[in-house]
Computed example of a mutant assay.
Amino acid sequence: MPKNIVFILILLIFSSCLTQANSQTHYAFADFISEAPKNTKEIIAWESKITKEGDTITSKSESWQYDINTNLIYWEKPSQYCYIIKKYNEKNRVTYLEKGCGESSDNGSIYVSYPKENTISEKHAMSGYAEFIKIKNSYNQKRKLMRKEIYDSLYDQNFNPSNKKYEIYHYVTVYKYDENNNLIEENTFDLPKLTTAQTISYTYNRYNQITEKQIDTKRNDESFDISIIKYSYYGYLHRGEIKPKLFIVNTTTISDYSTESYIEEYIYPRKNIIEVEQTQINTYINKTVKETYQLIYKDNRLIRKKYFSTSQKKKDRKITSWIDYQYIFY
Rank of each mutant, 00 (worst) to 15 (best):
K49L: 15
K49C: 09
K49H: 06
K49S: 09
I50M: 15
I50Y: 14
I50Q: 13
I50S: 07
T51M: 02
T51H: 02
K52H: 09
K52E: 15
E53C: 09
E53S: 12
E53T: 14
E53I: 15
G54W: 00
G54Q: 00
D55E: 11
D55Q: 08
D55M: 10
D55L: 14
T56C: 05
T56A: 10
T56P: 00
I57C: 03
I57Y: 05
I57T: 09
I57E: 01
I57D: 10
I57R: 15
I57G: 04
T58F: 05
T58E: 15
T58C: 04
T58D: 05
T58G: 01
T58I: 04
S59G: 05
S59C: 08
S59V: 08
S59L: 13
K60I: 07
K60F: 06
K60D: 01
K60S: 02
S61F: 01
S61R: 02
S61D: 00
S61I: 00
S61V: 03
E62L: 11
S63Y: 10
S63T: 05
S63E: 13
S63L: 13
W64L: 02
W64D: 00
W64R: 02
Q65A: 09
Q65K: 14
Q65L: 09
Q65G: 15
Y66G: 08
Y66P: 01
Y66D: 01
Y66A: 04
Y66R: 05
D67A: 00
D67G: 03
D67Q: 03
I68V: 10
I68H: 11
I68S: 12
N69H: 08
N69F: 08
N69I: 13
N69C: 10
N69A: 13
T70H: 14
T70D: 09
T70C: 11
N71V: 03
N71S: 08
N71T: 02
N71L: 06
L72N: 06
L72V: 07
L72S: 03
I73L: 04
I73K: 01
I73N: 00
I73V: 06
I73C: 02
I73D: 00
Y74N: 04
Y74E: 02
Y74G: 03
Y74M: 04
W75C: 13
W75F: 12
W75Y: 11
W75K: 13
W75M: 07
W75A: 05
W75G: 06
E76T: 02
E76H: 02
E76N: 03
E76S: 15
E76D: 07
E76M: 05
K77L: 12
P78V: 00
P78S: 01
P78F: 01
P78Y: 01
S79M: 11
S79C: 12
Q80R: 08
Q80A: 05
Q80P: 13
Q80H: 06
Q80M: 08
Y81S: 13
Y81P: 12
Y81V: 08
C82W: 14
C82Q: 15
C82A: 12
C82E: 08
Y83S: 13
I84L: 12
I84N: 12
I85W: 09
I85Q: 04
I85F: 06
